[in-house]
């Protein structure tokens, strides 16, 4: 197992270099000059332009710039933002917990509802529950996210006044945030009502962000379960006189989990890359919105560093998923 993990970590190296190269190249291929963007409408003199060009190193050949960037990255220096002048590393980790918290909640929501929905649909194949659940899943999957979010806001924040419209917590609460996860920090602060407020702020974004993964997980679980339910070992389990709940929930589901875990892993990857629409609609201070803003500002170090860190996060998720395969189905563990 350890060898396997080390082997997989080694394959990260070329991926890592590739991602640095692509992110470095990608932002430079976009038309637009960061110095002009920074100067804004006032413009700037040719001398000042040359001065800034030299300061950022844009006057040197592109491979020299890349080499400098790469050596910096390997020493843990992602550079400073052109706009805020703060290290990219600090900016990322100030915002990433918000995205991570939202993604994890959305995935828990999607898995907790998606798995049972898929199992129930598969067990009742062709009957009422199957049709009802699967058409609901299809609606959830095909609904535009922003429209779904606005709909929920109108009903639950507007008409019913159950949930707040935006942000991570009510402004009356203030406490240090050592972890960056609002749920944890609000609990640690000990202020009454802070945790409830954080939860209430999380509900709608979680539902909105979790809807598509929920639909995908439900459909994937259903099809995987249908395949497994026809297997001989399910007949064996029934011949043992077990309850259908135990047969479906343990004997069948464990075998059906492999494709479902794949889908969950892929979904987590997309969510971590920043749920731009959801974060924008709910003013959620995550990395999605930060990345988009940086691209518009041609903030090279932020875009490069942000993409790289997201890629690393996705690689870690993938590695976790691969190791989960072996835990769930020992047959895969063979190598």
């Amino acid at each position: 197992m350890l060898n396997y993990v080390i082997g997989r970590l080694l394959t990260f190296v070329p991926t890592f270099v590739g991602v640095t190269l692509i992110s470095f190249g990608f932002i430079r291929v976009l038309p637009g000059d960061p110095i002009i963007v920074m100067a804004g409408e006032r413009g700037l003199t040719d001398e000042r332009y040359a001065e800034l060009e030299a300061q950022f190193g844009f006057d040197r050949p592109i491979y020299e710039q890349f080499w400098e960037y790469l050596t910096g990255v390997l020493q843990g220096d992602l550079g400073n933002s052109f706009v805020t002048k703060r290290p990219v590393w600090d900016e990322f980790f100030a915002l990433f917990p918000a995205t991570l918290e939202l993604s994890v909640c959305a995935m828990i929501f999607a898995v907790l509802l998606g798995l049972p929905a898929g199992v129930i649909a598969a067990v009742n194949r062709g009957k009422f529950y199957d049709r009802a659940l699967m058409s609901t899943a299809l609606i959830g999957y095909s609904m535009p996210i922003f429209w779904w979010a606005l709909l929920l806001i109108i009903v639950f924040s507007g008409n019913l006044q159950w949930t707040p419209v935006s942000g991570r917590i009510d402004l009356i609460y203030y406490f240090p945030d050592p972890t960056g996860f609002m749920l944890i920090d609000s609990l640690r602060s000990g202020q009454s009502g802070a945790f409830t407020s954080a939860v209430r702020h999380l509900v709608l974004p979680t539902i909105v962000l979790g809807t598509i993964p929920l639909a995908v997980i439900a459909r994937q679980t259903r099809s995987a379960m249908l395949e497994v339910l026809g297997e001989d070992y399910i007949r064996t389990a029934r011949a043992k006189g077990l309850t259908s709940g135990r047969i479906n929930g343990i004997h069948a589901l464990r075998n059906a989990l492999i494709p479902v875990i794949t889908v969950i892993g892929l979904s987590v990857g997309t969510l971590l890359a920043g749920a731009i629409l959801t974060e924008t609609i709910f003013s959620w201070p995550g990395i999605g919105k930060w990345m988009v803003d940086s691209i518009f500002r041609r903030d090279y170090p932020v875009v490069q560093g942000g993409l790289l860190l997201i890629a690393v996060a996705v690689m870690i998720v993938n590695l976790t998923v691969d190791m989960l395969y072996g835990v769930i189905n020992p047959k895969i563990r063979k190598r």
Binding site: D232, A239, R254, P330
Partner: peptide
Amino acid sequence: LAMIFQEPMSALNPCF
């Protein structure tokens, strides 16, 4: 009342 089946390899659950 118990029963055993034809294909022992597929009649046992691979995950347990």
